[in-house]
Design a binder for these strands. Structure first.
Lengths: 306, 306
DNA sequence: TAAAAATACTCCATAGGTATTTTAT
DNA sequence: ATAAAATACCTATGGAGTATTTTTA
């Protein structure tokens, strides 16, 4: 049995007239008679009671008619569903994110996608480290990554979302909290909280910044990521240099100040270069076309950069 | 798109291997590749990511795989359903019945069908008059009839279920209620309740009985059917001659007595001679093969019959 | 290099067309 | 007498086969 048989059957069942049904199906009447005959013989059941004057459904035909309606509707719906998926209008996109991006960029990303692609579901994996995101991208565990370049591994494309200056995070009570103008120099001998992962992009940026002055930070504590780091700052354990997007983290007891010569760190969007998933492509095109994200990237050019 | 495409697709989706799938489908591998290719181009979506070493489903393919599973299962189930209907094991049979048959014969009929054809539903229309049943049979409103012959109209087959003697229904207080032996003669001048439909089979049988004696019944009341008639008897308004099956009607205040020379009336099963509905045929075959119904028919031969 | 999918081509089964017959109203 | 389904027969599309090439792990 083929769908053709069911489509023919449905037409005859609805019209109760082989001639009319054949006309609707754009085939000749004998072909239709033949097809129904074949269907009946394959099923081992007669579907129509027919004379040359009257065609009506048998009980088996009534049953099949109901089933056929649902079946053909389901087929149509499935075809439409595939079109939706293939066009990238529907689907699931798993997005990995470094810590603070969930606060600073996720709202904009999520609302952009919601508006342009309402049937797309984003599955967010927050607090992922950049190397983990590279692995997950490559293994297919995530489809998009919001990470800190330089990301390793070929087959992965990157687009810088933002160049964030490093800013000072200080406890409210700290002397620098009220300073009009902060320079790296002011951090000499101040208890400093650093990133535990020494080779993380942010930590490297911090180290690079300090290389422009003649002292190393007075590291008293370490944190695995920006969130915990800010918590330690709020607790008054010291100050820290963090990406500007940390301003989006709502945490009492911490104030942020721009820092002269503080350096910067990039935030980028990453994806598999050869990802065939259309919904990933359409989400990507929405994100990279967004003016606000693009403007952010250009407006945050740090002071020290030409 | 045809079911063939979906069957092929399902095989490839399950094995993730064109060669294995082709083997399972009993076709050559290139034919399968071709068919999937055609399906993909028709849908305008790629369903598999494939290299010569690895085959996997795309998101659209995942979606279609799920849909295909359900679709093919539904097709199989529908084919099975049609087999059930065509074989007569499943279906609905509408049965018309004269008044008292609902009490006397329906229990046996229903339990026979329930046991032999558990998936068959009987829709009982009780209290139908014989001519109405003939019309309903012919128009297709009912499929089987339990009626009183002679039934008119060709294209309708009859089989006698039972030959019932007419018996006396008398109020408990009536003198005849305790008589050892009742003859028609004893009803002379006794208030008599007759059937309103003069040409009904039961009334004709009553009239025929009275034609063997030299008096007509002393008709004081009439009833449209046996049920009402018995109610009037119970009320003490008179006696009546009723088919023996009336004994099955549970009604206080009425006693039944055999009547010598009381005559008899037949109860028969009727159906459309050319009914193509298999479930009607299978119910019929169950009913006409039933020993108990057959024995009833022979054992009730009335006294006056050779 | 070997396994597996894709391509090239050939063939025939069958879906569908036309002409005609049968049948029931 | 006529409308409509069935039958007979023919044609041609495309599904499936065999042989071969291409590709990638």
């Amino acid at each position: 049995m083929e769908l053709r048989h069911l489509r023919y059957f449905a037409a005859v069942a609805e019209t109760c007239h082989f001639g009319k049904a054949a006309e609707r199906l754009l085939i000749a009447q004998p072909a239709l008679s033949q097809a129904i005959r074949n269907l009946e013989s394959e099923l081992g059941a007669s579907l129509f009671s027919r004379t040359t004057r009257h065609v009506s459904l048998t009980p088996a035909g009534e049953f099949l008619h109901e089933r056929t309606r649902q079946l053909l509707a389901y087929v149509d719906d499935s075809v439409r569903g595939i079109e939706e998926i293939a066009s990238g209008r529907t689907g699931v996109v798993r997005v990995g994110m470094v810590g603070t991006a969930a606060f600073s960029h996720l709202p904009r990303i999520a609302s952009l996608v919601k508006q342009a692609l309402p049937q797309v579901t984003l599955e967010i994996q927050a607090d992922m480290l950049t190397p983990d995101q590279c692995d997950s991208l490559r293994s297919g565990a995530i489809d998009l990554a919001v990470l800190r370049p330089p990301a390793i591994g070929d087959g992965i494309s990157l687009r810088v979302l933002e160049v964030e200056p490093l800013i000072l995070a200080a406890p409210t009570a700290h002397p620098l909290a009220d300073a009009a103008d902060v320079a790296l120099e002011d951090l000499r001998a101040t208890p400093f909280i650093g990133y535990g992962a020494r080779d993380s992009a942010v930590n490297q940026a911090v180290m690079r910044a300090f290389r422009t002055v003649d002292f190393a930070p007075f590291r008293t504590h370490e944190a695995p990521g920006t969130a915990v780091l800010l918590a330690l700052v709020a607790a008054g354990l010291g100050v820290a240099l963090v990406p500007a997007s940390a301003r989006a983290v709502p945490l009492a007891g911490v104030v942020f100040r721009d820092v002269r010569e503080g350096g910067s760190v990039e935030l980028a969007l990453g994806w598999r270069q050869d990802d065939p998933n259309p919904v990933v492509a359409s989400v990507l095109s929405i994100l990279v076309a967004d003016k606000e994200l693009a403007e952010l990237a250009s407006s945050f050019v740090p002071e020290g950069t030409p």
